[in-house]
């Protein structure tokens, strides 16, 4: 089994952070993991992106051409990465900032107003974790328990408030995805 995930948004929206959390969640589960930051021209441009592969066997190609899953946090990322999702794949979209005028019938699009939902939690910065929560039910190789452990490692269990905020955001996203 292999989950290929693409993550994208404005620089500063915490795209790399989602990648890190997913990668560490993979480490927690003793999976093969490959995390690649956006590289090349995009690094200095409007959107940041990274990709994570989780696998229960050796990862050969680290390059994702078509992803099984994606999270996009802003409009340019949606426009750029919608075509990069595999037919039958799932894309979580932050509809607080993305207009879903164009869609694909063969891609499961989970739209949620992640920035607004994050505001409800008191911090718009955790829109990324809301989206991660919304994607979690669809991933094959990781789940909430592993992500919680990963957050403890990445945020640090000594930063209790920040950790709780992130966990609350993930839970909120999960709930919204399930309700849908």
């Amino acid at each position: 089994m292999m989950d290929k995930i693409i993550l994208a948004g404005f620089g500063g929206q915490g795209v790399m952070f989602i990648g890190k959390v997913l990668a560490v969640a993979g480490m927690v589960a003793d999976l093969e993991v490959c995390w690649i930051p956006s590289y090349g021209p995009e690094m200095r441009g409007g959107t940041a992106n990274c990709s994570v592969i989780l696998s229960d066997r050796e990862i050969y190609s680290p390059v994702i051409d078509k992803a099984d899953y994606g999270i996009v946090l802003n409009q340019p990322s949606y426009d750029k990465f919608l075509p990069r999702i595999k037919s039958g794949g799932t894309l979580v979209v932050n509809t607080s900032l993305v207009n879903l005028d164009t869609v694909r019938d063969d891609v499961n699009i989970i739209g949620l107003r992640a920035t607004d939902l994050a505001y409800e939690l008191g911090n718009a910065n955790v829109a990324n974790m809301v989206c991660l929560g919304a994607l979690l039910p669809y991933l094959q190789l990781t789940d909430y328990a592993k992500v919680e452990k990963a957050l403890e490692q990445v945020v640090g269990s000594n930063k209790k408030e920040l950790l709780e905020l992130n966990i609350a955001a993930v839970k909120k996203g999960m709930k919204r995805a399930v309700d849908n």
């Binding site: 990668a23 480490m27 093969e32 993991v33 490959c34 995390w35 690649i36 930051p37 590289y39 680290p62």
Partner: peptide, 10 residues
Amino acid sequence: DGFLGQMMEP
């Protein structure tokens, strides 16, 4: 190369 240098793996 720049790809291997930036990539994170276990």
